[in-house]
């Protein structure tokens, strides 16, 4: 029983680490979705670009890791502001479909630019975290994973405080709630939007840096963002706590499916299970677990 049980716990623990990554990615999506109603399809590319930027800062420019992370965050934030200003601002008030399509165009553009700027080779990040794993009562957790979990926790707390107490955070929530009313209350919606994009891109950069530590860095990194889609929907598109819970849930579900179902059904159910869960959840709760239930009056 013991090994069976340990196996289960170990799967859950590594699932949580994976889930934290998904949650981080999902939060990046949800921030923009919540405030502007736009699904940003270029999020994955931002993640990939940040991984590359951090890699080159560390290897080519010999910047210490923490400074490199900080710089990557700043660059990503600037990218967010520029994207908002140049691309999304002109689209204000246009049909949401066209805006989403613009982000798809942006993703195509960014992906090929990444190829041109950074090349197509598989790169391996010189991880600053020691490779020795930490053992706690038979449960193995790598130091990278601990850092991922800790920083996700910190980021979640920061977001919570920011949205609950800070002036700007309140302005963002107000804007998300009702743009016109926010404008009437003297909130600069344009500023809020720019900031939202910046914050979302910074979150993406954080997930990019962590992904760089666990995966090979190449253009394929952007596909990981698609893996976070179930997490977003599970949490209900517009809720940040929802995205975090959704991310964790998907991480654990994926690992458990890999550990148990893959042996029985076979053929890589690990990848498909999150999407099946997503489909089932939507059948029962069409607005996700934490989503806003829209009441339509007739």
């Amino acid at each position: 029983m013991n090994t069976e049980f340990m196996f289960f716990i170990q799967l859950v623990v590594s699932g949580i680490a994976l889930g934290c990554l998904y949650a981080l990615i999902a939060v990046g999506f949800v921030l923009i979705l919540k405030a502007t109603g736009i699904m940003n399809f270029a999020q994955g590319e931002v993640i990939m670009l940040s991984a590359f930027i951090c890699y080159f800062l560390v290897t080519t420019f010999h910047v210490p890791f923490l400074v490199a992370v900080l710089l990557t965050g700043i660059i990503a934030g600037l990218m967010g502001i520029v994207t908002e200003r140049l691309i999304l601002r002109p689209m204000l008030g246009e049909p949401i479909f066209s805006v989403v399509m613009v982000t798809i165009g942006l993703s195509i553009f960014l992906r090929s630019m990444a190829g041109i700027l950074f090349g197509h080779n598989n790169l391996v990040f010189p991880s600053p975290f020691p490779t020795e794993a930490v053992k706690m009562g038979g449960i193995v957790v790598s130091q990278t994973e601990i850092w991922i979990m800790l920083s996700s926790l910190v980021l979640a707390a920061v977001f919570f405080i920011f949205f609950k107490y800070s002036r700007m955070g309140l302005a963002m929530r107000g804007t998300a709630d009702h743009q016109d009313v926010a404008l009437l209350m003297g909130i600069s919606v344009k500023q809020v939007f720019a900031l939202i994009w910046a914050v979302s891109f910074i979150t993406a950069a954080a997930s990019g840096v962590f992904l760089a530590n666990v995966m090979v860095i190449n253009l394929g990194l952007s596909v990981v963002a698609i893996g976070a889609f179930p997490a977003i929907v599970l949490g209900g598109l517009e809720s940040i706590p929802g995205a975090i819970v959704g991310g964790l849930a998907i991480g654990i579900i994926e690992n458990l499916a890999g550990g148990y179902l893959d042996q029985i059904i076979g053929g890589g159910v690990k990848d498909v299970t999150p999407f099946v869960v997503l489909f089932l959840v939507l059948m029962i709760r069409p607005y996700g677990l934490f989503g806003k239930k829209e009441i339509e009056r007739v």
């Binding site: 066209s98 798809i104 553009f109 090929s112 041109i116």
Partner: peptide, 24 residues
């Protein structure tokens, strides 16, 4: 010249099209 430019141009074209003519 890099073939990536072709695809970058394609993405840029999509964006510009929609920014200047959102109705397609």
């Amino acid at each position: 010249y890099d073939d990536g430019w072709n695809i970058a141009a394609f993405g840029l074209l999509i964006m510009l099209f929609l920014i200047f003519e959102p109705k397609g």
